[in-house]
Design a binder for these strands. Sequence first.
DNA 1: CGTCGCGGTGGAAGCCCTTCCAGCTCTTTC
DNA 2: GAAAGAGCTGGAAGGGCTTCCACCGCGACG
Lengths: 361, 361
Amino acid sequence: MEALPALSVPVTIYDIAREANVGIGTVSRVFNNHPSVSEETRRRVLTVAAHFNYHPHPYARGLARKRTNAFLAVIPFFTTFFFLEILHGVQSALADGETDLLLHGVSHPDHAEPSLRRVSSRGRFDGILYFSMRLPDDFVQEVKQLKVPLVLVDAYHPDFDSFSVENVVGARQATAHLHALGHRRIGMLAANLESLPARERLSGYRQGLEEAGIAYDASIVLSSTSPRLDGFTRETGYELMGRFIAMGSRRPSAVFVSSDVQAAGALMAVQDAGLRCPEDFAIIGFDDIALAGHIGLTTMRQPLVEMGRLAVQRLNERLATPDLPITQHSFVPELVVRRSCGSGSPSAPELTTTQLTYSHA
Amino acid sequence: MEALPALSVPVTIYDIAREANVGIGTVSRVFNNHPSVSEETRRRVLTVAAHFNYHPHPYARGLARKRTNAFLAVIPFFTTFFFLEILHGVQSALADGETDLLLHGVSHPDHAEPSLRRVSSRGRFDGILYFSMRLPDDFVQEVKQLKVPLVLVDAYHPDFDSFSVENVVGARQATAHLHALGHRRIGMLAANLESLPARERLSGYRQGLEEAGIAYDASIVLSSTSPRLDGFTRETGYELMGRFIAMGSRRPSAVFVSSDVQAAGALMAVQDAGLRCPEDFAIIGFDDIALAGHIGLTTMRQPLVEMGRLAVQRLNERLATPDLPITQHSFVPELVVRRSCGSGSPSAPELTTTQLTYSHA
DNA sequence: CGTCGCGGTGGAAGCCCTTCCAGCTCTTTC
DNA sequence: GAAAGAGCTGGAAGGGCTTCCACCGCGACG
């Protein structure tokens, strides 16, 4: 260990063993924190390793251990804001620095399959995080056969662990909030009802009305028929809001919009019509993506960051104990008051992150 | 090859070789598209492989080939909108399905280093995409010594390939646009001038004024002193816009804001003051993140998707030909007219993606 | 009719680790 | 004083692939 680190560029475990006068087994044990290495030897090995800037080769390790220390995240790129936050949580849970994240952006829900093909190639990752998309049936088979643990986020399948959100409850609460603010004529601007979340949110809205003792009025419930992203787009929000505005005196005084992105469009429509938001229309969204803060939108928060974090945690647990019973976690969204409904503080941009609550399903 | 795929779960190249009555070398050649395999043998091997759902083990491959087929993306998570789009481009360039993307979110610019430590562990990826952050000096050393190709996106360093944006030119054009719309009293809302992009955009603004024959007036140039994200936040936009509003009759009629995020805050301030945007203030941003579309912000587009795509392409080129001369690409931002400046179509959310232009540095 | 070359092919060696078994040196125990 | 452990350690085998060298058969060539 006299010389400078002039060893050939790829420093291997053999180099370290030789320089430290130990066997390769011992070096390996040191790097795996195996207890049966004397303190003195351990220190010597570590010194030499640091000196040569040695790091075990991850692939060699993976091959020998039959473990990759990487997770695959299959994520829809089209719901931009949404997954971003979840990813944030995922990252922070991975911060141990031991596990890597492999990203697989899917640019269209129907294009998930091709990129899933690669999953069949065992040996790239230890587990899968699957976001917001329906799980194709043959993929389910494949994953189960390969015995790769998979955790669903913002999605549901009976055979896998999942973390999702109580759409019905959230929508009910949103409606209740509008009611509590004094609104009696509350409309809903829904996404394409072909999609489950859209239907659930509509259903929650109806429950909310019922609890408030308000009769359901189909004329102030507009839903998108757009197939694109199931209608969860700014464009549908803009267009449908225009129809509300055109109703004149028969229009609702408040609208529950089924997503923040749509609500952004709705807000633009209101502005374009020369109307103002808390005053002429109260608008509440759903999701609490970062955009909501930027435009002062009152909305129902989904604990996205937390969901990401817990999903990783769950994956680790399942890796450690494969036959854990499957659990389905379900979060209750939380009201975030900004200014689009007129209540709460004005609009000084808030910096705080509120606590989140959740419950078991 | 009579039996069902009842081979032990991990199917190896040996299994396939045996079942297809060939040597492992031949199987390997088939999977690597080596020319010297007879058509007949190739077909037979592929049939058997498909039958047993065989895929070469990526780690074993990586170990033997000394190549990982993965890129590392080091990305700031705090500039959410921004990197998202770039990532989109990266993904699409990776769509060949051969290369994987390893994600490394950095939640604070100062925290890049710890996560970079892992870079020293050779053998995890073949190349690095480094986004929007300053490259720490010791990291530069390390990367160069390890000879891992690195491409910078939205950042610059003389020793590496990079793709960035002409901040000066873009800011000049933004200013020119305001001038063309008839504005003569044009202010600027800048980020923290400690940061280079902030300074460049200010400098472009001044050039723009000069070209328009307007004298520079320091009283209507406000800059943030916030250290947080170098002042590129909604909060600074809100606050500084408030100061403009408070100027009464001496206030500018148009404001060039140094980023879309800040512009979002500025728009909120305008609204909160009971003023309206194209009418009382023309506001132009910079970046064209997705948010800009959602709030109808006129802005200077950076071709983010394209940058991501080209960065990947460049990395591949450099991998193929390591001693290519270093190139620094620089894009000229493009004006995207929405409604915050009052010109152009009203605000029906646009769906089109405009062409982008770019030039060599 | 030998020799060359070429399209194909088999498989050993090597990539860099982990793991397991054997073995070594001291203590401890009866 | 022998036997049995306890505490460490060395290194072969194995993980699944690529690559290279050796080799085989056969048509072409002189």
